[in-house]
Design a protein around this nucleic acid. Structure first.
Lengths: 380, 380
DNA sequence: GTCCTTTGTAAAGGAGCCTGACGAATGTAG
DNA sequence: CTACATTCGTCAGGCTCCTTTACAAAGGAC
């Protein structure tokens, strides 16, 4: 969908509705304040047309990315432009304290954007762990105490005053990449996050795949990179045991590597030409490439986006690409996440905006490109 | 959707339409001959109702399962009951000869069912290989010469006089299992076919997953059971090289096994207590279990159905179940395909019927259970 | 026999869309 | 500068699909 000034007649042509109906729609939207007159067309043959534009400040949506260490909040206006962002360290007391923290950050973002908080209509929140739509709880959410004890959806609705959809953060990252990342043209793709943990968000034919119990994309459990029948290893996941951040450090130290405190450090040593770092990354890439081969064999995605603090590193992406290109007849397209750590946040905003659009315009398409430029510098 | 006699008022309640509208729908359908009066309700309080039933013989649909060695054709009436089936060895001349063969089998099935061939409204055909919707061609279709040279959809339409949807046979098998097999309650599941080749049909949230290029479910390429970076092995697929029928025989012979001509023979020897046969199947099950673990990690299906001449064997299913139950906290449900070799055929019939229902009733649900009893004994 | 329930039809109307006609406003050709 | 072609937006009317309300007909329950 394109945005920007549009006339009644143009709208009719774009939507396929009759001129008459389009005109009624415009009248209606204007009466409700969703759009307003912008100007006139000029220079073309025929009568000049009155153009309309979205009243971007008429409504806002909230996106939340709740992590074990940080809470990230973004407010976007009706046009999809980010009006304000806030970050904070996640409240360690967990549970309701985190809910209250999100509410406070939202108020602060609204103030910074100069937006009436009552104009925020919908929200979406990404969180690690598996979300149970039935109970509204997030189960297996690590690092945040008591979050699995409360109905998060209900609590957020009470604290914020509007509905908030909850979704796995990696799934939202996939949504984000499709909205404003590198998957705008792709209907079927996978977002593989490699950071502290390993996860994947899947989109097939433009829809998120959640699986029967909401555990689709839990590729930590892929039987690759180790003995899948080792029941101790299975608890964390065979793949995670092989290329999770802990495993990477073990590999590095096992190869005699020194001078790196964490995975970021290993990447730093890689630049210095450290042999252990190189071998470590070669090994990790080799296992990761196998994971992508498995994803491809099962799902046939148009591309796979690598994200997360480790996955998005070009040193790793290059290695994986080289391995896959080496012998596949039609190599799998692999990209580093352009949105990086903001993918889930963008996905949350996009999801909330999509809900808003659906309720206002009766459509689900999101506005594209143009909205992307403004307002991001407001970010905390 | 239930079928069987239904009154106007009942229809209104079932569909949520108003009594008035339901009445109009009934009037319309009766005028067009799709339904007819059946009788009256009795014994209940209130005025007795006139009931209606489908005129099952008003229209038929065709299902085709085209394999490298056999062509299977089934005719079903409007109620979904199989009216006639035909089988034949696939015409080895391939191409248009196969199309003509399908047309001949269809005529013969119609004659056997006592149905006017002009009443066949839609068809669906399953075939190995990847179907390209754009060109109507089936590419990489093994064992049938020249089939990738012709527009199969067009040719079938000309020969048969009605439209035929073409789909990968394993995908249709998944549809079949959902319609009349063991996945009627499952919205997200996988059908894994293990026979001459290896393939998988995927359903997520009740919809087939085809992938970006129609190659979803090509699990022959799963990087399991061998070195995935061996480019020779990759051509056929790493997994297929490990547990395809050829690989199974190699394993058996490599273990000193004797007296089995084919995989069926190995299963026979298993019953006799042959140690090589047992080890072979243990190994195959071990690799297959890993494949299911990968499928589970990526898709989180409600269950996995094992089909194909090898996959549906209880000796194998039991072994796989035992391996998965051994250490998984929440074991994956694994079932042997109850439809067996007829899964794809049933899926084809179901798909065609679904199209017919859509066009007649403006709905996509298929009739359930009750239709299953009648007419199958007419099968060839 | 009366009452209550249920079926099915009739009448009227609304929501959402469309078509066709037409006046108003504009650029362009002569 | 004028006549014309083009485009915008509205008006009037109508179609389709569905709903609500009212009511007559047909049955069981007491």
């Amino acid at each position: 969908m394109r945005s920007g000034p549009i006339s009644r007649a143009e709208l009719a042509r774009a939507t396929g509705l009759s001129k008459q109906t389009a005109s009624e729609v415009v009248r209606d939207l204007e009466a409700n304040g969703w759009i307003r007159e912008r100007g006139q067309t000029q220079g073309l043959v025929g009568r000049s047309a009155t153009t309309y534009e979205l009243d971007a400040g008429r409504a806002y949506v909230l996106g939340v990315d709740l992590g074990g260490t940080k809470v990230h909040v973004a407010l976007a206006d009706l046009s999809g432009a980010i009006a304000a962002e806030e970050v904070d360290a996640t409240d360690r007391r967990g549970g309701h304290h985190v809910i209250e923290q999100i509410a406070a950050l939202t108020r602060s973002a609204a103030a910074r954007a100069g937006a009436d908080p009552r104009r925020i209509r919908y929200g979406a929140m990404g969180s690690p762990g598996v979300f149970q739509p039935g109970s509204g709880r997030i189960i297996i959410a690590p690092n945040i105490p008591d979050l699995d004890q409360i109905d998060v959806v209900k609590a957020l609705r009470v604290s914020l005053g509007f509905g908030v959809a909850v979704e796995n953060d990696v799934n939202l990252a996939a949504v984000g990449e499709r909205w404003r990342g590198c998957c705008r043209e792709a209907a079927t793709f996978a977002f593989v996050a490699l950071g502290t943990g390993i996860g994947m968000g899947l989109m097939a034919d433009g829809k998120l795949i959640r699986g029967a119990r909401g555990a689709a994309g839990e590729i930590a459990y892929l039987p690759l990179g180790g003995d899948p029948f080792d029941s101790r290893g299975y608890r964390l996941g065979t793949l995670e045991n092989a290329i999770g951040s802990v495993a990477i450090m073990e590999r590095y130290r096992g190869l005699g590597g020194q001078g790196a405190e964490d995975v970021r450090g290993v990447f730093d040593r890689l630049v210095d030409g450290d042999a252990a770092a190189r071998t470590t990354m070669d090994e990790v890439a080799r296992v990761l490439a196998q994971a992508l081969m498995a994803i491809r064999a099962i799902l046939d995605p148009e591309l796979v986006v690598l994200g997360g603090s480790i996955g998005a590193r070009p040193e790793l992406v290059e290695r994986v690409r080289a391995l896959l290109n080496g012998f596949m007849a039609e190599p799998l397209r692999v990209e580093a996440s352009p949105l990086g750590g903001r993918a889930a946040l963008m996905g949350a905003v996009g999801t909330a905006l999509s809900t808003l659009y659906d309720s206002v315009f009766g459509m689900t398409d999101l506005p594209g490109e143009q909205a992307r430029t403004a307002g991001v510098e407001t970010a905390a």
